[in-house]
Simulated scan of single mutants.
Amino acid sequence: MLRNFFIDCSKAANCCDKAQYNEASRIEKLKMRLHRFFCERCQNYTKKNTKLTKLIRKANLKPCPEEEKQQWRKKIENELSKSNSV
C-alpha cells in the first residue's frame, strides 16, 4: 500500500508543475511532498519552479492573441522566402 505513494523524479516534477497552477489533486500533492522529502534534486526543482512562477506573475505577462501570431508567421515566412530566392 505504501509503495503507491512513492513516485519517480519525472512524476514528481509533473506534480510540481501541476501544483503551481492548482491542477494537482490532493493525492498528487501528497506524493510529491513525500518524494521531495527524500530527493534533494526535486527540492531544488520545486524551489526554482516556485521562483519562476512568482517572477512570471510579477511581470504580469499577457498571452499574444492568435491573430498577431498568424501575422508574425506570415512575415517570417515572407522574409524566409525572400532570403531563399536570393
Rank of each mutant, 00 (worst) to 15 (best):
N84G: 06
D17Q: 08
K69D: 08
E79L: 15
K69M: 11
M1T: 14
Q71M: 07
K58V: 06
A13G: 02
N84T: 12
C9G: 05
A59T: 05
N84L: 12
E66P: 02
L30F: 10
N78H: 07
D17Y: 00
K51N: 07
Y45T: 01
C64F: 06
E23I: 07
A13R: 11
N60V: 03
Q20L: 15
V86A: 12
C16Q: 02
C15E: 07
Q20I: 14
D17V: 11
N22Y: 06
H35F: 01
K29I: 07
K58Y: 06
E67L: 05
A12N: 04
R57K: 14
S85P: 01
W72I: 15
N60E: 15
A24V: 04
R57P: 01
C16S: 08
N44K: 15
S81V: 09
T50S: 06
E40H: 13
S25P: 03
N22C: 06
S81F: 07
K51H: 09
L34R: 04
L34A: 04
K51L: 08
S83T: 11
E23D: 09
F6S: 11
I56S: 02
R36Q: 09
E67T: 13
K75E: 14
K54T: 08
R73D: 14
R26G: 10
K31A: 03
F6K: 08
S81R: 12
S25G: 07
R36E: 06
N78G: 05
K54V: 05
E40K: 13
K51S: 06
C15P: 00
A13C: 07
K62W: 02
A19E: 05
K29S: 05
K29V: 04
C39R: 03
K82F: 09
R57M: 12
L2E: 14
F6P: 03
Q20S: 08
C64Q: 10
C15W: 03
F6V: 14
H35C: 01
F6T: 12
L61Q: 06
K74M: 07
S25I: 04
N4H: 08
L61E: 06
C42Q: 03
E79W: 06
C16A: 15
K54Q: 15
A24H: 03
E77T: 14
N84F: 13
I27Y: 01
P65H: 01
F37A: 08
Q70R: 15
M32E: 05
Q43Y: 01
